[in-house]
Design a protein around this nucleic acid. Structure first.
Lengths: 142, 142
DNA sequence: TCATGATTTGGAATGATTATATGTTAAAAA
DNA sequence: TTTTTAACATATAATCATTCCAAATCATGA
């Protein structure tokens, strides 16, 4: 029998998406991945197994999975989109120096403000913490 | 006498930045502006007064002001950077349809989680609310 | 007023992402 | 299994935001 990795399950390809080897490879790389990779990082990692992998396929798949609700696009890093297979509401810490993104799974009770948002329907919320990670704090002894 | 607009003051150009007409025009457009404009929107608006205005100058100035602490770059919209002259900690509502960004000035008490962030120093935090604004909700009667 | 370094400018360069055209293939039907 | 075909993968071109660059201009202090 196959050894099962302990990963927080990824929903997989939803709807009527075909299970192509490329998609399965991307899915496998993403499943349980907490590094919030960019499209390029996905491409690099998956290319090792599928040397024919195209950048376009990465984007296509990333979009398909996002639309299917199996993936979340993060806008945290203004330089490039990052992807998170953890679609449950959670939050992030971003190191201002190394740009590392760390999950903050703690449940944060946000008192929905009534102000400007009163006419709007809030679907989701996301807290970003900015600061310096342990590694970068250490190096900053200047 | 000149009519004074009630704008939350913008810090202005800090440090040793030269006060050029371009910068002053950008500063004037930004001062009290709550629309979270992109570089292009700044360019378009300010170009009307200074037809010689260059896109590079907009970016230069935006960066200079950001470094000087008179401006905040928002990463909310993955498609383009938005700028906010309100540098006080506050939060935002983003309409998933029209991409409008609305200030949420309510003070939100965030219980700093101890978890993953325990080794890190948190400098700032920012709450993003996602949903549909009043206008887009109305149109969505399909 | 002058000198000088900062700034502006237009255009080229870069990098991420999207679009397109063409060959392939997974999956359903026969 | 073979056929059929819409969905998919791929390479490449195109686009868009942003950055870079070199030359011309300007703000400010001496």
């Amino acid at each position: 029998m196959k050894k099962q990795k302990k990963k927080p399950a990824l929903k997989g390809l939803g709807d009527g998406l075909k299970r192509t080897p490329q998609r399965l490879a991307i899915l496998d790389f993403l499943d349980g991945n907490t590094s919030h990779p960019s499209a390029e990082q996905v491409y690099k990692a998956v290319s090792k197994k599928y040397q024919s992998m195209s950048f376009a396929t990465v984007y296509n798949t990333l979009h398909a999975l996002t639309k299917a609700g199996s993936l979340k696009e993060l806008g945290i890093d203004p330089d490039r989109r990052r992807y998170d297979p953890n679609t449950a509401t959670h939050h992030h810490f971003i190191c201002l120096k190394c740009k590392r993104i760390v999950d903050v799974m703690d449940e944060i009770r946000i008192a929905l403000p009534k102000s400007a948002v009163k006419e709007c329907s809030v679907v989701d919320s996301h807290v970003e913490f900015f600061g310096y990670c342990a590694a970068c704090k250490k190096k900053a002894k200047s």
